[in-house]
């Protein structure tokens, strides 16, 4: 996502509809994304955000919108034809 000097370690979850990426080095564990996710799709693990259940995600983009640290991004995957 962000052009770092060396590529940032990124954790990724995806299903047919969506791909969610988290950059652990950017995440400061503020939990805003976890608490504001309307469907509880996210959770914390060792003070870092992670996707608890990708299939709950409704692509509302609240987590990406509210993350202060560029740590989480949500990508709608193109509908399979």
């Amino acid at each position: 996502m962000t052009k770092g000097r060396q590529a940032e370690k990124v954790e990724e979850w995806e299903n047919a509809k969506v791909r969610i990426r988290v950059v652990p080095r950017y995440c400061k564990g503020c939990e805003i994304c976890v608490k504001l996710c309307p469907v509880r799709a996210l959770g914390m693990e060792r003070f870092k955000s992670k996707v608890a259940d990708i299939d709950k995600c409704i692509l509302c983009m609240q987590c990406e919108m509210r993350c202060p640290d560029f740590a989480i991004s949500v990508e709608r995957k193109e509908e399979a034809p």
Binding site: T2, G4, Y26, K28, C30, M65, C67, P68, D69, F70
Partner: peptide, 17 residues
Amino acid sequence: RPGKLPHIWCPGCSYGI
């Protein structure tokens, strides 16, 4: 700018938003 993240603001500070 490359290599500038993570930024200086505290966990939960809304400035990043």
